[in-house]
Design a protein around this nucleic acid. Structure first.
Lengths: 146, 146
DNA sequence: CGGTCAACGTTGGCCTGGCCAACAAGTCGG
DNA sequence: CCGACTTGTTGGCCAGGCCAACGTTGACCG
């Protein structure tokens, strides 16, 4: 075994790097959202509605990778805020149709700015080119996974 | 406001991208570790010991960003497995000195491979150059944050 | 020397995020 | 009409990250 002298640079391992970076980024975003009284799920759900339009809760869950049960809670909270409207689907009595309200859109815009700012501080040390490359690479990774 | 017609590409937002990528990466690593009965903390702590040598629990916590209380639990579990040894510090009765055992080193090597494999599947769609660049950029970001 | 403050290990608890199981109500294909 | 499936909902589990408190011990300063 060559575990004798020099300390190994596990920290330099990509996997660990990823772990560090991910937790860091996740915390930044969560904190930013928490500061304005929102959670990740709120943002995810509002964004999905804004992007793809009204949908049933199950469909919303599929869009954002949320569990059905979590969609219930999130829609409840957003509905209380008036950011979202939940009404029964006349064509399928099992379903609720969830749609974003104008107030919800405004709220989403706000969250957009907040999250964008968090990302700004995170990526501060990177040049414009590096950021672009990072975004591109991350997109590749994500799309590949489905 | 130009929020009229076309759906916006929120998903393309870097912040959201980061969110997606982070959760995805975190899950991959956690699953890989869980498959061999380990957790993030175990890996983190073993790596810190292997890299920097024996230390008190508080010091270990600082190295890996773990809370003191979590270090206690993790050391307990690792000690039961025989991967780690905890003995009182003769020079400072407040402290315990935690050191990694040969078996622990072997265990760590195993975890290294497991985590590396997870990362391999994550980064599969990337070219060697892209991976290098990704690692470099992530390092920059992390170092900048401290 | 005594007293004060800080660090240590430990216990216990909280909140969040992600997940799963079960259920009743509803839909749909055969 | 019957079985298989979907939907919304409730309840619960486990992990991760954090914080508060406590008793013990050490360092420092008057």
């Amino acid at each position: 075994m060559e575990t004798s002298g020099a300390p190994r640079r596990l920290r330099g391992t990509t996997s660990w790097l990823l772990g560090q970076a991910t937790t860091h980024a996740a915390r930044l975003v969560s904190e930013a959202l928490g500061a304005v009284g929102a959670r990740r799920y709120h943002y995810s759900l509002l964004a999905a509605l804004d992007e793809f339009g009204p949908a049933s809760q199950a469909e919303l869950g599929r869009r954002g990778g949320l569990d059905r049960s979590d969609v219930v809670a999130t829609v409840n909270e957003l509905a209380e805020k008036g950011a979202v409207e939940r009404r029964p689907d006349p064509d399928d009595k099992r379903r609720n149709i969830v749609s974003i309200t104008p107030s919800g859109v405004a709220h989403l815009r706000h969250l957009d700015r907040v999250v964008g700012q968090a990302q700004e501080t995170l990526l501060a040390p990177l040049s414009a080119a590096e950021r672009e490359e990072l975004v591109r690479v991350l997109n590749v990774v994500l799309e590949h996974q489905g």
